[in-house]
Design a protein around this nucleic acid. Sequence first.
DNA 1: GCCAACGTTGGC
DNA 2: GCCAACGTTGGC
Length: 151
Amino acid sequence: MHYWLMKSEPDVFGIDDMQAVGEDVWDGVRNYQARNFLREMKQGDLAFFYHSSTRPPGIVGLVEVVAEDIVDDTQFDPDSPYHDPRSSPDNPRWRTVRVAYRETFRHPITLDALKATFSPDKLLVVRKGNRLSVMPVAAKVAKRLLQMGRA
DNA sequence: GCCAACGTTGGC
DNA sequence: GCCAACGTTGGC
């Protein structure tokens, strides 16, 4: 079982939306490095839900991977902001996972707290200039994050 | 709203 | 294959 971190803008889709829908396809990722991490995800993996482009940014909850290797249909939708005209249904360029809401942390972990607790080589999201929207989290770090969030 | 960081595109 | 221009992310 592996841990991950996934970013979302609460103005677009936040942890409350995640809780409301219960389950959702994590669509809209259009970065190859992030997609490669999505491809590595397995059913049962847990992902920290991170709010970006908000004040304060930080980890707010937890979701679980419930289905692997899902085609992101928004790539074929001309009306979608995630439309990719160069991807073909025969060979979809963007695949993702389906996730289910698990919990909202009693104590959201702000980016400031993350920076104070973890060095950039331990937790990628605190690295300056990091723009990855999906990234792995080491088990040891994940355990600590769960403690902090649930405290 | 600004701007640093950095991924992508396209001309050559 | 290089690299300048451009677009996007995301913290502040």
